[in-house]
């Protein structure tokens, strides 16, 4: 055979490229189960291989989107055997949260090649914002128990709240927030079941794509709201919410 039995790790590159004949692939997977170093290398090299895929990105036809979204309504989701978690939503929220993280960190913008220059500027901005929020932001978005709650705001913007119960924190991300006129800002609120509202931080009125870690602990919040407020924010909302995203479990 072509495999030198002395170095089972050597197949890791071919494995990541899906270039091992099936018998060797099965053998390598057996090796992988017991080799932490190879598992780490697989994860690292896959990241590089995924960039090769990204480089080929093209626009997919809109009919394909419609067809696929229709199809999934008839396809049941599988559930990995593990202790039941009553708070877990059906769609893997870790998956969605990871994409929210990519969006927040500029990854999404970068993929949208049709507006590359614009995207680069936005990505830099988003990265600076994320850095300003500290690593807590990335920690939250990648928390294993992170759940994503998405919705549309009344102005058509898309918003999502990522919640981690274990970290007792939440983050807010929005795409296509309209720019505000005058000296106004967006303000986020934690809403408790009893109806009380706690200020949870401001977003600049310049709009577009924004992301931030919410101020203060999640506590008993069951929803996150967003309003438009005078510069500096308000202690209680002075306008109707653009949207309220339920995060109750």
């Amino acid at each position: 055979m072509t495999t030198s039995p002395g170095d089972p790790h050597a197949a890791v590159g071919a494995y990541v490229l899906h270039a091992l004949p099936s018998a060797e692939e099965a053998a390598f997977e057996k090796h992988l189960a017991g080799c932490e170093a190879c598992r780490r290398e697989v994860d690292e090299l896959r990241r590089a291989a995924a960039r090769l895929a990204t480089a080929e990105s093209i626009d997919a036809p809109p009919e394909l989107r419609q067809r696929t979204l229709e199809r999934i309504r008839t396809v049941r989701q599988e559930h990995a055997p593990r202790p039941p978690r009553p708070h877990r939503r059906v769609m893997s929220m870790a998956l969605a949260a990871s994409l929210a993280a990519a969006a927040a960190l500029g990854g999404l913008a970068l993929w949208q090649h049709s507006e590359a220059d614009d995207a680069r500027a936005r990505a830099v901005q988003a990265e600076q914002q994320a850095r300003g929020n500290g690593t807590a932001f990335a920690d939250l978005l990648t928390a294993p128990d992170a759940t994503l709650h998405a919705g549309k705001l009344s102005d058509g913007a898309t918003a999502a709240v990522v919640v981690s119960q274990s970290q007792n924190r939440a983050a807010f991300t929005a795409r296509d927030l309209p720019a505000l006129t005058g000296n106004r800002v967006y303000e986020l609120w934690y809403a408790a079941e009893a109806g009380g509202l706690r200020p949870a931080g401001l977003l600049p009125g310049s709009g577009r794509d924004s992301a931030r870690l919410l101020e203060g602990p999640l506590g008993d919040a069951v929803a996150v709201g967003i309003t438009v407020e005078p510069a500096g924010g308000s202690a209680q909302p002075t306008s109707d919410p653009l949207g309220i995203i339920s995060i109750g479990t």
């Binding site: 895929a53 080929e56 696929t68 769609m91 969605a96 969006a103 339920s246």
Partner: peptide, 29 residues
């Protein structure tokens, strides 16, 4: 937003984010 539609909405986000590279890669190969 906690309706069953929430999952489909989340999936639509995943689709939109990744269909470009998935389709491009499939075309190239």
């Amino acid at each position: 937003m906690r309706s069953a539609d929430g999952d489909h909405e989340a999936f639509a986000g995943v689709y939109d984010a990744l269909v470009g590279p998935v389709m491009g890669l499939a075309c190239r190969i």
